[in-house]
Write a protein that binds this DNA or RNA. Structure first.
Lengths: 191, 191
DNA sequence: CCTACCGATCGGTAGG
DNA sequence: CCTACCGATCGGTAGG
């Protein structure tokens, strides 16, 4: 059996796992050490503080959603297809990067004020992408002209974020089916 | 100035306030004592443990949602009006009993397995009310016949629960407007 | 990455 | 409802 020293990356990954499942306050540095097979105090050769770890995980999560939004916008010129790509991309971040995504969505409030503001800014920019696509669709006739883009964006993101709370890939609904159920429900509301 | 001893009710109310804003793990018994103007250790004349407090708050939250669902079902015989009453009732529980409601929704996972199962059961029964109303509406032609009641119930509750994360009564949207925006978005999806 | 430790804080008890 | 305290655990540091 080969044993290798942990890297900073390993520490951040494990921290994401624990923060996502037990919360930031519910995770101790000793818990995290145990997860990696070392003492809590040894973690301080990789990070300067526990909050430093939270920052790293939350920024990863923000980055994944940002990248997904950018890819979705570039994938098509039509609002309806951009919206579908946004929905599919969000689901994929939530399922494939679930630790970072959940920590980004739910544990950022444990950051100090300055850093929390940065993360809220990232969330706002991401929501703005949805709003812009919806507004473009309302202008060009894809969606109803009396659509409220701001409300619709909030409602769509509400549905998307909640996926993490109920969906399991063990059930009858596969990932593609999930994305289609959401897109179907949402699109009916928009026309 | 009149100073009165605190009752168990006072303690539970204050606990709900702190659990909702800082989380169960982020709240210490000394924090809670400070909130009530007494020492942390004095709380143990009112409760037997910190988890006992969480149980009490979470059960209050469950009770409010249960009562709202029952009232909504009794308010009308038509699925569309029952659904509107469910939506309005959920929003009102979230806004008027926000501490208990948020603790019920987000902090139940800190309970031990047995008690958590009970709460998940309560959530499932509540969701089932939405599902039944949706299915009845699909049967009688109010909603589309190919509606998926289970999916729709999840999506509607996703929108409703998220209200707590973005809505503020300081903004341009009053409570009635909020309820109508949600009902409008949701109903378009169901027909 | 370890041992040994720091002061602070945790949930909770004893005894009034 | 208080003081005084318990053992356990917290984030983190010193020094190797």
């Amino acid at each position: 059996m080969v044993t290798t020293r942990n890297t900073r990356e390993d520490v951040i990954t494990a921290a994401g796992r624990l923060f996502a499942s037990k919360g930031y306050h519910g995770t101790s540095m000793r818990d995290l050490g145990r997860e990696l097979g070392l003492r809590g105090s040894s973690l301080y050769s990789h990070v300067t503080s526990k909050e430093d770890l939270l920052v790293a995980v939350v920024e990863q999560g923000a980055g994944h959603f940002e990248a997904s939004a950018e890819a979705a916008l570039g994938s098509s010129d039509t609002p309806i297809e951009q919206l579908r790509a946004l929905i599919a991309g969000h689901v994929e971040v939530l399922l494939d990067r679930s630790d970072a995504a959940k920590t980004f969505l739910y544990e950022a409030e444990s950051l100090d004020d300055d850093r929390r503001s940065l993360i809220i800014g990232a969330r706002d920019r991401y929501e703005q992408v949805f709003r812009d696509v919806l507004a473009a669709g309302a202008r060009d006739g894809t969606f109803s002209a009396d659509l409220h883009p701001k409300m619709a964006a909030i409602f769509i993101l509400s549905i998307l974020n909640a996926v993490e709370r109920w969906y399991t890939s063990d059930g009858p609904l596969d990932r593609n089916g999930l994305e289609q159920e959401i897109a179907r429900f949402v699109e009916k509301s928009l026309v």
